[in-house]
Simulated scan of single mutants.
Amino acid sequence: MPPESPPAAVAAPDLSKSPPTLVELFIAFAKMSLAGFGGVLVWARRGIVDQHKWMTADEFNETFALCHFLPGPNIVNLTFVFGSRLRGLPGSIAAFSGLVGPPALIMVVMGALYHRYGEIDALRRILSGVACAAIGLMLAVVFRMMTPLFKRRDVVALLVMVLVFIAIGLFRLPLAAVLLIAIPVSIAITYWMRKEAA
């Protein structure tokens, strides 16, 4: 009987290439931020994992999970952690500058235009359409980030995710209280499962 073929692996980062330069980091994050109408997370994952292959899907999820529990905007935290991982403090600054620099400049201009023309009804309808597109993009990235869990058939991780969603999304329990329970439980379950597998 032939041996069972191993499951398809998630594309690993190309470690043979040297890390991106500070300019490449700046440009990459500037592109992500300029494409990120309604949120940069979708484009950050696409650029970091799919396009440049600087991280695997699992590494991105783990890094984003860490950044989610730090104070401040998640994508800004991710930018600092990612830039620091590749190029230290200068990498963090380059990635952060690319992330916030171009959009900040655009927002100053757009703010001035909105102040002048914000009462126009057509503009309000356009902004409503942009809001719908932003929700669609967020749902798309949520499903993409769940893909590694489904591929590994990680039932425990999916169950914890569903329970946290129910607690916060449906029962409206405080985020901090849910996380204070969910984080230690997740760590304990992972530790126990790895111990059993060893």
Rank of each mutant, 00 (worst) to 15 (best):
F60G: 00
F69T: 07
P7R: 08
T147F: 06
L89V: 15
L15W: 05
T190H: 11
A157W: 06
A30Y: 06
A177R: 15
G136L: 12
F29D: 06
A112I: 09
N74Q: 12
T79S: 14
I166F: 03
V162M: 02
A157P: 01
F96H: 04
P184W: 07
I93S: 02
P148Q: 03
A30S: 14
N74K: 11
A30Q: 11
M107A: 04
R153W: 09
L163W: 01
E59P: 02
T190D: 13
F82T: 15
M161I: 15
L25R: 10
A35N: 08
V23G: 09
H68L: 13
I106F: 07
E62L: 09
G111L: 11
A9H: 08
F64M: 15
L86C: 12
A122Q: 13
V164F: 04
A133M: 09
G169I: 05
V155Y: 10
G101M: 05
S186E: 13
L175E: 07
R46I: 02
P174K: 04
A133Q: 12
P174I: 04
R153G: 03
V100D: 00
A140H: 06
F26A: 01
V81R: 06
P71H: 03
M193Q: 14
L123S: 07
M107I: 09
A65G: 13
A197I: 05
A112T: 07
L179G: 00
F143R: 11
M138E: 10
W43R: 01
M145G: 00
V100M: 13
M110E: 01
R144L: 15
P102I: 05
I48C: 05
L159P: 01
I187T: 04
C132Q: 03
R125M: 09
I120F: 14
L149H: 03
I181K: 00
L66E: 09
L173H: 09
F80V: 08
G83N: 03
L99D: 03
I135A: 10
F29G: 04
